[in-house]
C-alpha cells in the first residue's frame, strides 16, 4: 500500500509543477503529465497482477475452452493503453488524435473478438439445427 501513497503524492506534486511549467513551456508540461501517467499506470498494473493471476486460476477451475480469457486480457490491455494515450492527447489539446487512438483501440478489440463471435454464431447454428 506504500506505493499508493507515493503515487498520490507524486501526482499532486506533478499537478503543481505542471501548472508552473505550463505558463512558459506547455510542451514540457505535456511530457511531465505523460511521465507521471506512465508511472502511475505501471503501479496500477503492478497491483492488478495478482488479480489477473487469480483469473487464470478461475479459468483453470472452470475449465474454459479455447483462449477466451486470453482474448479478454488482451482486450483489457489494449483498452487501457488506448484510453491512456487518448486522455494524454486530450490534455495536450489535440482531441482529434485522442479520439483516433481510442477508435483504433476499439477496432483492435473488435478484431480480437472475431473468433468469439464466430464461436457464438456456430453455437447458435447448432442449436437452431437441433430444433
Amino acid at each position: 500500500m506504500e506505493l499508493f501513497w507515493k503515487a498520490a503524492g507524486g501526482v499532486l506534486l506533478a499537478v503543481v509543477l505542471g501548472l508552473t511549467l505550463g505558463k512558459q513551456e506547455k510542451d514540457l508540461e505535456v511530457l511531465l503529465t505523460m511521465a507521471v501517467c506512465c508511472m502511475v499506470t505501471m503501479i496500477a498494473i503492478y497491483y492488478l497482477e495478482p488479480v489477473l493471476e487469480f483469473m487464470w486460476e478461475l479459468e483453470e477451475l472452470g475449465d474454459l475452452q479455447g483462449d477466451l480469457l486470453g482474448i479478454l486480457m488482451k482486450a483489457v490491455g489494449i483498452g487501457l493503453v488506448a484510453e491512456l494515450a487518448g486522455m494524454i492527447c486530450n490534455d495536450a489539446g489535440n482531441s482529434s488524435l485522442g479520439k483516433v487512438i481510442q477508435m483504433l483501440g476499439s477496432s483492435v478489440i473488435l478484431f480480437l473478438c472475431v473468433p468469439i463471435f464466430s464461436q457464438l454464431l456456430n453455437l447458435i447454428r447448432e442449436i437452431l439445427g437441433e430444433l
Binding site: 507515493k6 503524492g9 506534486l13 508552473t20 511549467l21 512558459q24 513551456e25 514540457l28 505501471m42 503501479i43
Partner: peptide, 23 residues
C-alpha cells in the same frame, strides 16, 4: 516496483531551466 519521484523533479527542473534560458 518503485515510484520514480526523481523523474518528476528532473523534468520540472529541465522545464524551469529551459524556460529561464528561453526568456
Amino acid at each position: 516496483m518503485t515510484m520514480d519521484i526523481d523523474l518528476i523533479f528532473k523534468i520540472a527542473a529541465i522545464g524551469i531551466i529551459v524556460s529561464i534560458l528561453t526568456q
